[in-house]
């Protein structure tokens, strides 16, 4: 089965992104497919490479990046939500005259259409949020 995933909450503040991550691992271990993970609302904060948790804690941003690298999973940050919250790739930073980008490896920034497309093309769309 093909799953689309929506993550609506930021890391550490809320368990939604942990639950999404663990769910995705279980999906993959069961031989199913992840079509896309879309990050919306504060969920876009999962995708900043500046994340620096204490060393004895899980590193949520790195965990996503490793998941993307190992399994080729499409991690998409909503552009409008990312702009509001100061998450930028090089293109976005340049376009808005910012002095740096901060997107984590394995993530990309795109529009809400990618969420709707995930709904249309997946067998199930699972929402992780408050």
């Amino acid at each position: 089965m093909k799953f689309g995933i929506l993550v609506n909450e930021g890391p550490y503040q809320h368990q939604a992104s942990d639950s999404a991550y663990l769910f995705i691992k279980a999906v993959l271990e069961s031989g199913h497919e992840i079509m896309r993970v879309f990050f919306y609302h504060d969920g876009v904060n999962n995708g900043t490479r500046l994340t620096t948790p204490p060393q004895d804690d899980r590193h949520i941003a790195n965990r996503w990046s490793e998941l993307a690298e190992k399994n080729g999973i499409d991690l998409v940050l909503c552009v409008a939500a990312a702009q509001r919250r100061g998450i930028a790739d090089d293109d976005e930073a340049k376009r808005h005259g910012k002095d740096a980008s901060n997107i984590a490896p394995g993530f990309r920034i795109s529009g809400l259409g990618q969420l709707i497309e995930a709904g249309i093309q997946s067998d199930r769309l699972i929402v992780f949020g408050d």
Binding site: Y40, A80, G111, L112, G113, L115, I116, E117, G119, I120
Partner: peptide, 11 residues
């Protein structure tokens, strides 16, 4: 904002 964008997908 999602609803307005989604409207273009004719669902």
């Amino acid at each position: 904002e999602v609803v307005l964008i989604a409207a273009a997908f004719e669902q």
